[in-house]
Computed example of a mutant assay.
Amino acid sequence: MPEHAKPPGLIQRYREELQTRHYARRTVTTYEQWLRRYLRFHSLRHPREMGSAEVNAFLTHLAVDLQVSASTQNQALSALLFLYRELLERDLELAGVVRARTPRRLPVVLTVEEVRSVLQRLDGTEALVAGLLYGSGLRLMEALRLRVHDLDFGRQELTVRNGKGGKDRRTLLPRRLAEQLRPHLQEVKSIHQQDLAEGWGRVQLPHALGRKYPHAPVEWGWQWVFPQQTRWCNPASGEQGRHHMDPSLIQKAVRRAVLAAGISKPATCQSLRHSFATHLLERGQDIRTIQELLGHSDLKTTMIYTHVLNRGPLGVSSPADLL
C-alpha cells in the first residue's frame, strides 16, 4: 500500500469480509445498514471500545422502543455477530437481551381456483415469473435470478443456484410453462444478439467467475431468463449491460391481479409459493419431497403447511359436516 494511501475503514473492511465469504449482495447491503445504525446509536464509538453490553442495549432498543419484529431483530443480531466474531474476533454474551416476540403466523394460501384467477389476469413476462412461483415453488428472487442454463427442458426441471442459505437445488419445470418459456427465450436471445452487435451483451457473473471464465459473460447460457428492458449504464466507464428484472415489477403486477380477481386475502408473490406447497400436500405428496423442492433446511419450516390444510387426505373434517 502506498504511504499516502489510507487503510480501509471499518465499514469497508466489514463489507469486504462479507463479500469474501460470498454473502449475497442484498445481505451485504442489509448487514452494512445495521452496522451503521449500531454505530449511530452509540454516538459513533468504535466497536472495539464496545462489547456485549452495547450490543444488548441496541437489540433491546429495537425490541422495546422501535417494536421491530423478531425476524428484524434477529437480522440485526446476525449482522453484529458477524462484526464481532468474524471481523473483530471477539465473542459476545447475549444474556439479558429483550427479544422481540415471535408471532406465529400461518402463510396466506390461495385455492387452486384463486391461483388460476390470478394467473389469468397476468400476461407476458409477469405471467411467466408468477407461473414459476406457483408451478416450481420458487421465491421471487430465485425466479428472477434464473439463467438460461438453469432450465432443463429435457428433464423438465430447473436449478436454483445460490438460493437462501447459499444452497443449490433442483425443482419442477411444469410442461405448460416450458412451452411458454421457449418463445420467451427466443425473444431474449434476439435482444442479447442485438446487444452483442452494439458492443455490449456482457452479464454480471457471481463472485470471481468472470475472471475465471472471461468469455462466459457474453455466452448465451449465462444470460438472465428475465432481463430488464433497458440497459444499465455506468456513467464513469460508459459500460452498458442488462441486469435481471426488478422484483417490484412482479410484486405490483401480482397485487393488481389479486385485486382484479376480487380476492380479499392479503396475497403476495410469496403466497404463490405457499400455495404450491399446500396443494402438493393436499394431493398426498410426502413432506420430505416438498421440503427438498422448497429448499428448506429444517423440516419444521415445511411442517407449517400442514396447519393450513383444509381438504385432501391429510385434512380434518369438522363434525358439523356430519350433521
Rank of each mutant, 00 (worst) to 15 (best):
V118L: 09
H61K: 07
L35P: 00
A79E: 00
S317C: 11
A267F: 03
E187L: 15
E126K: 07
R255I: 07
T20G: 12
L119A: 02
I304A: 05
F58M: 10
S52W: 12
Q19T: 08
L272Y: 01
D123Y: 10
H307I: 03
L151C: 13
R36K: 13
A57K: 14
R175S: 01
E142A: 06
A70W: 15
H149M: 11
T268N: 05
G51A: 10
H22R: 12
I290T: 10
V118P: 00
F276T: 03
L119Q: 02
A260D: 15
L94H: 00
S136D: 05
L44G: 04
H279V: 03
L87C: 11
G312C: 02
L106C: 11
Y305L: 14
Y134W: 09
D91C: 08
R182F: 10
L10H: 04
P8N: 08
L88V: 14
K300W: 09
A261K: 01
P247K: 10
V308Q: 01
R170P: 03
T301N: 05
F276H: 00
I263A: 06
M141N: 10
L185A: 07
P313A: 12
E17M: 11
L280G: 01
A197G: 14
H149R: 14
H215Y: 07
Q75G: 13
Y14H: 06
D195P: 13
T60H: 12
T159C: 14
R26A: 07
A76S: 09
G262W: 05
T301R: 04
L280W: 00
L44H: 08
L133K: 05
V68H: 13
S318I: 02
A178M: 02
